[in-house]
Design a protein around this nucleic acid. Structure first.
Lengths: 339, 339
DNA sequence: TTGTACGCGTTATCAC
DNA sequence: GTGATAACGCGTACAA
């Protein structure tokens, strides 16, 4: 009652703080943003006023005045693939460390150029200053390239454009680790279950797999298509189980490997006695497959971190950031054995 | 050269569009926000100008002027638990449908009141109008409650405060489905591996499990502690395998169930012949465990969606939203059998 | 139906 | 070291 005519209870603003501290708004602004040239005692007074009034900067106003939003856009697939989740976390952490907030836009699993472009739009509209893309993007599309050149944008899975050094996990190395491990165990050739074709990772791994085999004078067997899901792994497993003499398989993801193991089990093919299996990712359940999966670990969180740092450094222009290594490593467990 | 004195290439603004279309900024604003009372031809001219100038509204300015940010905050754990990932996707989708953007703040796994409060701060500072919390929060903390009352906030796992009707997945039902299934199969009692204690879900499930047993006149055996991870499931499995006469176990998550299965396998206890196992979540790999897991599916994505819609409707005040059901369902596979 | 003028809260520029 | 004052770009009474 009676409070009806009070202005809406927007929190305190700089002017309020300034009044209370007996300084100008400018000084308040300086103190808040940690600029120099403020006498310690003045700063104290301001800080006290901030505390008492429970003041917080209005992001919209700050952003409008400075032209900086400190928002990082992130595009991810709307399915909950392990890799996306881990990547997001890495991006978020790195962003937070540098005072950025992450705005997320999810796109459907099978991404079209349009859906990604729409995600870009939403993010750009929210004022994102840079974008980390965690989904496959059709680089052939010129509109896509134009859009990507408009603000710092980086695709997490592979090298950037132009001056950007490659920084993603080297999928060629991933394949090499997997295939050489199997070859060294005495297997004569290695079959490959691929990931979803639209992902660069999938292509690069397939090429890597072929290269390693050919370098040893081995003619690569036909590839078996997969789409990252355990279901597709199961189907691939049934296909492979029907082929005699297969002794070693390199699968594009741990999730598919679970499907593969089931198919082999049903077909009476023992892993690793009859067939060895190497997969990729090292998700938390990999060690709990039956048998425990030998897999090439990908440091997704580091990758997300690296992508975010890369974009932030591009936004800030000069900032030197310490980008963590994103080397894949082979984790040997029980799904592989000597021939 | 020569371009040195041009203003920074900020994109076109309303004034530019207005000039180009030969109207006032007000009219542009009206057209953009789809308000009525604009002659179709005028609107056309404006739209054309927007197109030509590639104009997009400045979110910061719009937000400052209107006091609305259309940003939804989301607090999630920084580990990549399946449930969090799925929840995020649900939130994101629902938000996008209503023109909201999601700002994410990740907090460490073992959440303290401080870390959640800090996440709130970051989100609030970004101008979030409401928050969906996907991590356990200590409700005892009065500061927490105060903060939560300051803006529409909802904890995804359980009922809201005050007038809010409960809308989360009913964990009591989850337990009932799991335990009754086992009891109906003829098991005399059911053991329980709990989730991380700080999560409401874990507590509610444990209570539900006890209630169902007691309702049948069964004295609940001691609970086995877990923390959602497969490792903790493995430890729990070893503990249980050492106890004679255990024939049925209800585990708090699929991930833990994988650990449990491994421990049982190592101990020579056959599932489901010797021991039946029911878990919770129905992650994509649940069907590919050995044996395939009987589990209580939780519609996490729907849950995220529901949480987001709930918050949005509170923000908008009147908006009637269609909140999807979030009923758990029992999925029977091969990890359970009659006694 | 359309335009004018002001306010939103902050930062930047330039004096002092 | 500190303070006026002017943008920043949009929404919104109010006037026309």
């Amino acid at each position: 009652m009676g409070s009806k005519h009070l202005p809406p209870a927007r929190g305190a603003n700089q002017a309020d703080v300034a009044r209370r501290a007996g300084v100008s708004t400018q000084t308040v602004s300086r103190v808040i943003s940690g600029q120099p040239n403020v006498r310690p005692e003045t700063a104290q007074r301001v800080l006290a006023a901030v505390e008492e009034l429970d003041y917080r900067v209005n992001h919209a106003a700050s952003s409008l005045a400075s032209g900086r939003s400190r928002i990082l856009g992130l595009v991810v697939v709307s399915t909950n693939r392990y890799s996306s989740a881990a990547l997001s976390v890495g991006v978020e952490k790195a962003a937070a460390e540098h005072g950025y907030t992450v705005a997320t836009a999810a796109v459907a699993d099978h991404t079209s150029a349009e859906s990604v472009l729409q995600a870009f739009d939403r993010l750009e509209q929210q004022g994102a200053e840079g974008i980390v893309v965690g989904v496959p993007i059709p680089l052939e599309s010129t509109t896509m390239r134009t859009r990507m050149s408009r603000m710092p944008t980086i695709r997490s899975e592979h090298a950037g454009f132009g001056e950007d050094a490659p920084f993603a996990v080297d999928q060629h190395t991933v394949s090499r680790l997997a295939v050489e491990h199997l070859l060294e165990l005495g297997h004569e050739t290695v079959w490959h279950v691929t990931g979803e074709e639209s992902w660069q990772e999938a292509k690069q791994r397939r090429e890597g797999w072929k290269d390693v085999l050919r370098a040893r004078g081995i003619d690569p067997p036909p590839e078996i298509p997969g789409d990252w899901t355990p279901e597709s792994g199961y189907r691939a497993g049934r296909t492979i189980a029907a082929i005699p003499d297969v002794t070693a398989v390199y699968v594009g993801s741990d999730e598919m490997a679970f499907g593969l193991l089931r198919a082999f089990h049903e077909a009476g093919r023992q892993v690793p006695e009859d067939i060895s299996v190497v997969s990729v990712d090292d998700i938390s359940l990999a060690a709990y497959a039956a048998p425990a999966l030998t897999t090439v670990r990908q440091p997704f969180q580091s990758l997300g971190r690296a992508a975010a740092l890369r974009v932030i450094s591009r936004i800030e222009g000069d900032l030197e950031v310490d980008i963590p290594p994103t080397e894949p490593t082979l984790v040997v467990r029980s799904s592989t054995a000597a021939r």
